[in-house]
Amino acid sequence: MSTPTLLPEGEPQAGGLRRGRPKYLEVRDLSVSFDGFRAVDGVNLDVIQGDLRFLIGPNGAGKTTVIDAITGLVPATGSVNHTGTEILGRKVHQIARLGVGRTFQTASVFENLSVLQNLDIAAGSGRGPLQMLRRRKSIEPAVEEALEIIGLEGAAGKQAGILAHGQKQWLEIGMLLVQNSDVLLLDEPIAGMSQDEREETGALLRRIAASRITLVIEHDMDFVREFATSVSVLAAGKVLSEGSVAQVQADPKVQEVYLGTSGTEGH
């Protein structure tokens, strides 16, 4: 086994990788209905490998539902294509095995297991039965690298349940890394974090996003402005606007949704 390199070279950029054949996530006409209410209504999204896309929008816009639909948690219609493979309609664990990973609004790590065990489980969905029945003797190189990237190498033996809130979110991101996901779907990763933790999380996202397809749901506009390479705005289940932060901020439709007025603010 070669040494894994979870960290790509370079930074994410708007539009993603320009050379080679980048991986992509292509969402077409994605719709989710709950008892007749269309929470997600014909969403189209294209995220290219190497882009750090933020998904923003008012409460109830359907942001989390989009991620739920992509990861198979809620049934949806339309199409989600991950670099040539249709993933919609598959089971949650099958989608995860196709390289689509996600985190949750409330950090959901395995609290009774250590940080190391959490990462080891995340790294292991491809293990065979014999390997599963043996004891974990050494730390896999990918796990070791992930520990370093998320800054928890000192807490490897700690129970995940006693980690600080921010550390739990980082652990979840680390789990995505060792899980070998090409698609990272992060649901409000910095909610409830201190300012320092936010900065560190942002830096972490910048470091890992250059080789991955990254979609981050976020509310904090300062954070979006600082770290996003591109932004999609979702409102009432539809994509309203897309582009750089400056572009969507200047979009009158976006201003209307956020302020309830047509774009009369001076910019």
């Binding site: 990861t71 089971k91 949650v92 664990h93 995860a96 095995r97 990973g101 996600r102 949750f104 959901s108 395995f110 609290e111 009774n112 297991l113 065990q117 959490n118 080891d120 489980i121 995340a122 292991g124 969905s125 491809g126 293990r127 390997q131 599963m132 029945l133 043996r134 004891r135 974990r136 789990m175 899980q179």
Partner: peptide, 25 residues
């Protein structure tokens, strides 16, 4: 209990739904 399977089992016990998103059934 001490194998990787045992660790996974505890993970399934505590957060069954979460385990799915890591690629396990």
């Amino acid at each position: 209990m001490h194998s990787r399977f045992g660790e996974l089992l505890v993970a399934v016990r505590d957060q069954e739904e979460r385990v799915r998103f890591l690629g396990y059934d």
